[in-house]
C-alpha cells in the first residue's frame, strides 16, 4: 500500500478548475494542494460556493475537466471507480427499490446468496436491521442517509467521499450519524474525505480540518485536530480549535470589508 513507499494515498496537486457561466469564466478552484494519508479522516470546511463540493466531485471522478493532477494510490484519477465511494447531500436512493435493492445496486458480487449476506452485513452496520424491504419513501431523512452510506460502502472502497452528507438533517439526527460514521471509519479503516459547512462537524470528525476560502476556492489553512476520540464538543480544547477556524473566516470577512470601505 501507499504507506510503504511513503506516498500519500490521495494526492491533489495544483488543481485549478473553472466554470463557464453565461460565456464568462468563473474560477472555482485555484491551486489546490492537498495530500491525504491512508486511513486518515480529513474534513474540508468552507462557506457555500467555495468549490469544496467541486473538489470532492473531482476526486470522485465526476468532474474531469480541470487542470492539475489527482492521484489515488499513485494512479491518476480519470473517472469514477469502485475504489471510491460517495455519499451525496441528498440520499439519492432509487425510490422504486427496497433498502436491500438499493444497497446491492452497485455490488459486484454476483452470487445471490453471498449478495444477500453482504447486504445484511451493511444494513446491520448502519443500524437498519428490520428495514430490509422498506421503500425510501417510508424512511426518515436520517434513515435514508444511512442506506446511502451502506450503498457507498458495500464494495469496500478505500476512500469514502462525504459531500455534506448530514447537511439536510436535524441537529440530533446529525450528531447520531456523525457518531455512526466515526464508528464505521474505525471498524472499516476507510480513508474519509468530508466536505461540510458545519465547523463543529468538521472538528468532531476530522484528523485535520482544511479551511477553504471563497471565489476562487483556495486552501486557506489546514488545522490539525489533535484531540482523542470520542471528542467532547463542549471541551475547552474543542472550543480553541473552533475559535481558530472562526478566526480564519473572520479574517476573510474583515479583509473584504476593508476593500468595500
Amino acid at each position: 500500500m501507499s504507506l510503504l513507499n511513503h506516498h500519500p494515498y490521495l494526492e491533489i496537486n495544483d488543481v485549478n478548475k473553472q466554470f463557464i457561466v453565461d460565456d464568462q469564466i468563473v474560477p472555482a478552484l485555484s491551486a489546490i494542494q492537498l495530500a491525504i494519508q491512508a486511513g486518515e479522516f480529513v474534513s474540508i470546511v468552507g462557506s457555500s460556493g467555495c468549490g469544496k463540493s467541486t473538489l470532492l466531485r473531482i476526486v470522485a471522478g465526476l468532474e474531469c475537466d480541470y487542470q492539475g493532477t489527482v492521484t489515488l494510490d499513485g494512479k491518476r484519477i480519470v473517472g469514477p471507480g469502485l475504489d471510491r465511494g460517495i455519499v451525496f447531500q441528498e440520499h439519492r436512493l432509487l425510490p422504486w427499490m427496497t433498502v436491500t435493492e438499493n444497497i446491492t445496486l452497485g455490488l459486484t458480487e454476483s452470487d445471490p446468496e453471498r449478495k444477500k449476506q453482504i447486504a445484511q452485513t451493511y444494513i446491520e452496520l448502519v443500524g437498519l436491521a428490520g428495514f430490509e424491504s422498506a421503500f425510501p419513501n417510508q424512511l426518515s431523512g436520517g434513515m435514508s442517509q444511512r442506506v446511502a452510506i451502506a450503498r457507498a460502502l458495500v464494495n469496500k472502497p478505500q476512500l469514502l467521499l462525504l459531500d455534506e452528507p448530514f447537511g439536510a438533517l436535524d441537529a440530533l439526527t446529525k450528531i447520531q450519524l456523525q457518531q455512526e460514521i466515526l464508528r464505521i471509519w474505525q471498524s472499516e479503516k476507510t480513508t474519509m474525505m468530508l466536505v461540510t459547512h458545519d465547523i463543529d462537524e468538521a472538528i468532531y470528525l476530522g484528523d485535520r480540518v482544511v479551511v477553504m476560502s471563497k471565489r476562487p476556492g483556495m486552501i486557506k489553512s489546514i488545522i490539525p485536530v489533535n484531540l482523542p476520540r470520542p471528542r467532547n464538543r463542549t471541551s475547552y480544547q474543542f472550543f480553541e480549535i473552533k475559535k481558530a477556524i472562526y478566526r480564519e473566516f473572520f479574517h476573510e470577512d474583515e479583509a473584504s470589508l476593508e476593500y468595500v470601505i
Partner: peptide
C-alpha cells in the same frame, strides 16, 4: 442525480437501463 449514482457505482449500461431508466 441517479445518472451520477450509476457512474459512481460503475453500473453496466444494461443494468442502468433496466434498473434506473425504465423504472423511472
Amino acid at each position: 442525480k441517479f445518472v451520477e449514482v450509476a457512474k459512481v457505482l460503475e453500473i453496466s449500461r444494461l443494468k442502468f437501463t433496466s434498473k434506473i431508466v425504465l423504472p423511472g
